[in-house]
Design a protein around this nucleic acid. Structure first.
Lengths: 154, 154
DNA sequence: GCTCCTTAGTTGCATATGCAACTATTTAAT
DNA sequence: ATTAAATAGTTGCATATGCAACTAAGGAGC
């Protein structure tokens, strides 16, 4: 007897849920920035955030911390430098390295994102209990571990 | 007394976990396709999947189902049409509408992705119990609801 | 039947991204 | 010291994406 399940059950796995939810977060993020006239993308915000916590990181470190290809980071920084959010400075010890710093303006911009981010968190985590939050983060950690251990040995 | 917490607690919210995990999934996905020489992106695969379940969808419907801007879908389809995975056909009832169909080759390609997707699910959901899976999906649903209701009334 | 509004799809412009090839610089090896 | 290998960053080429302006076609109102 032939079953009607002619396809694998991808739709009920975690993947699509993750993808769709992520898209909605991204969309809401950009929407919020645009709404208050912030000339900023989520990706640029993440760079500003990392630099706020540790100014002067080099591009390699920034790329690693933001899970980004170094070429992608190069271009991201070029745009941010043009907008005067950050500036690059060649290291004196090792001329290959460029350290990246926030400008005063970049700091201002980052401060302006704070209420937006706060609002995003509030909106997103509405009706979600502390336990659920812990649960989901625990599961995220597991998934990341699963992929890390799987990708390493390739 | 001044607290040391000078920044909002974005890092411990769900957002970054979601973003990073999503990136890893995407990376693993692409890696897997490339590994077996499949000339396909995750996005193209999703289109193939939707068409597998319902051949002949029009572009508007496809864009909606895949959470994509219609212009983005246009270009995605153009590339897929060039690779002969799908073809467009103008509707006779309404000449504005283009229905999209899988080619024989497109079906073959989609079938080849199945083991890859199966492997992705297996890898990703390793050590994750049925209960956890239900939990995480339930929370994803909540987040999506939160954003939907929030975006609507803008 | 003509005008206006709406809808489906396309295109220009801007962003982000990965891979691979390239340059410049540093370090290791002989 | 000179050569070879490794490292940091950039660039070409390809993909995907959203917004806004556009074209073509359908539908409503008169």
């Amino acid at each position: 007897m032939k079953t009607k399940k002619i396809d694998i059950d991808f739709e009920n796995s975690i993947g699509p849920w993750l993808g769709r939810t992520g898209k909605m977060v991204d969309y809401f993020f950009q929407e919020s920035f645009n709404a208050i006239g912030l000339d900023l993308t989520k990706e640029q915000m993440i760079v500003l955030k990392k630099l706020t916590f540790q100014d002067g990181l080099n591009q390699n470190e920034l790329a690693f911390l933001t899970l980004r290809n170094k070429s992608s980071l190069t271009r991201l920084l070029t745009k941010m430098e043009k907008k005067n959010y950050i500036f690059r400075k060649q290291s004196k010890e090792d001329k290959r390295i460029k350290n990246v710093y926030l400008t005063k303006y970049g700091k201002d911009i980052y401060n302006k994102t704070k209420p937006v981010i706060q609002n995003l968190i509030t909106t997103m985590e509405q009706n979600i209990s502390k336990e659920e939050k812990q649960q989901i983060i625990k599961i995220f950690k597991k998934i990341q571990t699963n992929f890390s251990s799987s990708i390493e040995h390739i």
